[in-house]
Design a protein around this nucleic acid. Sequence first.
DNA 1: TAGATTGTTAATCGATTAACAATC
DNA 2: TAGATTGTTAATCGATTAACAATC
Lengths: 222, 222
Amino acid sequence: MQEITDKISDAVIRRLPGYYRYLGILEADGEDRVSSSRMSEDLGLNASQIRRDLNCFGGFGQQGYGYSVGKLKIEIERILGLDRKYSVVIVGAGNMGQALVKYYLSGKKAFIIDKLFDTNPDLVGTEVAGVPVMHLDELSKYSADNPIDIGVICTPKEVAQVVADALSKANVKGVWNFAPANVTVSANIAVENIHLNDTFRVTHEKLVTRTNRVNKLFVNSL
Amino acid sequence: MQEITDKISDAVIRRLPGYYRYLGILEADGEDRVSSSRMSEDLGLNASQIRRDLNCFGGFGQQGYGYSVGKLKIEIERILGLDRKYSVVIVGAGNMGQALVKYYLSGKKAFIIDKLFDTNPDLVGTEVAGVPVMHLDELSKYSADNPIDIGVICTPKEVAQVVADALSKANVKGVWNFAPANVTVSANIAVENIHLNDTFRVTHEKLVTRTNRVNKLFVNSL
DNA sequence: TAGATTGTTAATCGATTAACAATC
DNA sequence: TAGATTGTTAATCGATTAACAATC
């Protein structure tokens, strides 16, 4: 495994998924190579910045040629850890849990959704897109036999922390929390509080700000 | 309306929702005042940075006292534009659309979800948490009589751009796109491509990186 | 080879932090 | 008033951009 150094900044890491998505589009279009200046145009980023970003992880490019789309995509996939497989369980088989299964995580080969967990008797025993829904009480027993990499919380916020504790006991290695409340776990578990709510707020602020630059009338009428 | 200047950086704006959420918690706990040093401890940010952030918008604090929780919360609410009301329609009444209605946008007084739109005959004519589901073909007529501030795309990615075009024609002022594909609209409409997928990737990268700092064994075993 | 484009250094720009005078 | 804490300036730090030598 490649040594992950602390010197790669969050600013760089935040841009990687965008590069990855872009390279996927190029690949689908049958493009073999891409230069930093082409990427710069398409992504609206400075070409120097792109070269510098990609160089954080090693020299993927070739002078006079540019970058190989396929090779670069594979490298970024590796950096993002998407070349591995992760066992995922989702707690909460409501709309958000189901949306993740059917819509956002389906077809992502890195993330294998093994089980959904819920307490609703109408849902326990059913399947969502082929993924069985078990009762939350069975999580502990299940995890004893089936190591879980990532536990996803898609419950109402009132029970988010309780579920986080249950996931901790189930020895998950990371937690993605989609409930609109912060949860805490012990320091050896990675946790990401996603706060979709904040997205709305930031989004909206961006809306006002960005629009303001374009057309002041619009802001005032909004 | 307060003049929105261009000099407020994205870095500051990204922190505002966190301040807002934190102040809500303090308020619920019955706290009247808070100092930048207390916020610094609780939020893990530098106290200077917090004071500087809050000062971008005017002097909300008082020397020797700190900040009034209630007043500061109202100020940030105003800055984020959450003191207004926005007419929202959601296109796509599947799991993600329903999750937004029932789970993430319910109880947010700034965002009024007027209608859901879908093409599925099983859904058209039903209600989701009291919000009627109309056929997408009716969007144009509906919007002629009912101005829409924000159109939300919760469809499969294959139709995201078509829906974005329909929303443009319906004269929405902003678009939130939850489909995992970029959509483009004319420059006078604000668009936010949310890319929940990227959240997973970044999240996961953070997971690996952060954990690496804590416990190298963990990374290697993951 | 000549042209193109990277990798990388140096310059710039912006954001964070420290320090402290202002002031409640 | 004295103590506390902001608002703000100055110092530091880090990220972005420009420029160009290295090199394919």
